[in-house]
Amino acid sequence: MTNPDTLSPALLAWATRALGARPTIHHVSHPRENSRVWQLTLPSHIRFYLKVSPEPVMYERETLALRHAVPALGAGRAPQLRASSADHLALLLTSVPGRPLKQQKLSRAEEARAHRQGGALLARLHAAGDLNGARRAEAEQALQAAADSAEHHLQEAGDRLTAAEQKRVRELAEQLRTLPPLPLAFIHGDAWERNLLWSKELGHAAWLDFERSRFAAAVQDFVLMACSTWADRPDLRAACLQGYGRDLTPEEQQALKCLAALDAMNCVIWGPKLDDPSVTTRGWRTLDRLVEGVFA
């Protein structure tokens, strides 16, 4: 049986050709089943990362993002694509200064700076995608597609939800169908503190992990932060949106609440499957806030 933590000879040979030298290898995947990432260090001490995508669609999304939208963030603000292999679903990426906010203890001022810069970078990303033709249609249908997923999520969650919780989720999902057209964007798709880097030395932020990037409603990029960090830190919400350059419209705020219900369903379903109590807790807490009417 192949050890998923071990870089295969074929992948190592591909990376060596792309880098022009044989690197030393260090396994640095996230502690979850489908994460496969290695740090590659050249004899010159320059570092790269080799990432194998879990699914073809994630490889395609991240490749598109890195080629066509992510460069708009600027040097050092996101990984750059050195090489890619559709055969291996592999991406060879440059290293970016900093560590995820989730892994650091920062002062409140530093946290605010990181979120403000993170919001500014999201604004650049949102404006970078080419919203023409099929891509615009994809973005325009994003909230409808989210609403369509609600019943499946509820069935999978089963009797883990009370009748009141099920009713609230259905109500909010249906409200997504009645909202007017919202601002569209090329979104990160997984924007929260696990993927927001902060460099204390440089005093700047960066985003990574674009495998869920896509064309959608811009507000969809704020759901994870609204359901996690912002729940206890409205000051960080304000900082992020200040950096973003605008507050959410009333219609976007309503969409955010509706989308939070669907994120809660995902957490309740996938948290136990992934053996991740923090994800499960996020889901139940969001549901409680929605049922009690205190989600903001």
Rank of each mutant, 00 (worst) to 15 (best):
K51F: 11
P97R: 07
L131P: 00
A127Q: 13
V28C: 07
H30M: 15
K105W: 13
V96T: 12
D130E: 10
A69F: 09
H126F: 05
Q39C: 15
L106I: 01
R113Q: 14
L93Y: 03
L89I: 01
L92D: 08
P23Q: 00
L40P: 14
A21P: 05
E33F: 13
L81C: 01
L125P: 01
V96A: 11
L91F: 00
L42A: 08
D87M: 05
H30L: 12
R99F: 10
E60P: 07
L50T: 14
A123G: 13
G119M: 03
R82D: 04
H126C: 01
V37T: 13
V28I: 12
N34R: 12
R47N: 14
N34I: 14
R108A: 15
P71I: 05
S53D: 12
V57R: 11
E55S: 12
A83S: 03
A75C: 06
H27I: 06
R77W: 03
L42S: 09
E110R: 13
T24R: 14
E62A: 01
S53F: 08
P100L: 10
H26Y: 09
K105F: 06
V57D: 15
R124I: 02
G118N: 14
S29P: 02
A90C: 02
Y59H: 11
G74E: 03
E111I: 08
R32T: 06
L42G: 04
T24N: 07
R124Y: 01
R67S: 07
S84C: 08
T41P: 11
H45R: 15
P31W: 12
R36G: 11
S84A: 15
K51S: 08
G119V: 01
A112C: 13
L131I: 06
V37I: 12
F48N: 02
T94R: 07
H45V: 04
L89E: 02
F48C: 13
S85P: 07
G118E: 02
S107Y: 10
L93T: 02
A112H: 05
W38L: 05
P54R: 15
Y59F: 15
K102Q: 13
R77P: 00
H88D: 06
V70T: 15
R124Q: 09
P43D: 01
S84N: 07
L89C: 03
L121H: 01
E55V: 14
R113I: 06
G76Y: 02
A78Q: 04
R116N: 08
H126W: 04
H26S: 13
R116V: 14
L42I: 03
I46M: 14
Y49V: 06
G20Y: 03
L64P: 00
R82A: 10
H27C: 12
Q80I: 01
L64E: 09
S107T: 15
Q104R: 09
A120D: 04
G119K: 15
L42P: 12
Y49E: 09
E33L: 10
F48L: 11
E33K: 09
A127R: 12
S84G: 02
H45S: 11
P31T: 03
L106W: 00
R22Y: 08
R36H: 13
A72S: 07
L93K: 04
